[in-house]
Computed example of a mutant assay.
Amino acid sequence: MKILVRNLERSITEAELLELFKPFGAVESAVVVMDAESGKSKGFGFVEMTNPREAIKAIKGLNTLKVKGCGIRVKAAEEKPKA
Rank of each mutant, 00 (worst) to 15 (best):
K80W: 05
F24M: 06
A30H: 02
T64N: 12
V74F: 01
K80M: 09
G25A: 11
E48R: 06
F24E: 02
G45K: 05
G69D: 03
I59Y: 00
L17E: 07
E14T: 12
S11W: 09
V47S: 00
S29W: 02
E48P: 04
A77V: 08
K40W: 03
T50F: 00
P23H: 09
K66R: 12
G61I: 02
R10W: 14
G43R: 03
S38Y: 07
L65T: 10
R53G: 01
F46V: 13
G25H: 07
G43C: 03
P23L: 09
V5I: 15
T13Q: 15
A83N: 07
E14G: 13
S11M: 14
G45C: 05
V33D: 09
E19R: 15
F46N: 11
V47C: 06
I59R: 01
E9L: 12
A76Q: 14
T13W: 09
V33A: 11
K60G: 06
D35W: 07
P23T: 13
T64F: 06
G25K: 08
L65Y: 04
N7W: 07
K2N: 15
M34P: 04
A76H: 05
K22W: 00
E37Y: 06
L62R: 03
K80T: 11
T64E: 10
T13M: 14
G43S: 05
M1E: 07
E19L: 14
V67K: 05
I72K: 00
L20W: 02
E79I: 12
E79S: 12
T50H: 02
C70L: 04
K40Q: 13
V74I: 11
N63V: 02
I3L: 09
K68W: 05
E79G: 11
C70T: 03
G45T: 09
A26K: 14
R53T: 07
E16I: 07
F21W: 09
I56L: 08
A30R: 04
S41H: 08
E28N: 09
L18K: 13
L20I: 10
A77D: 13
A36N: 10
N63H: 04
R73Q: 12
A83S: 13
S41R: 08
L8I: 15
L18M: 15
S29R: 10
K82D: 11
G39K: 08
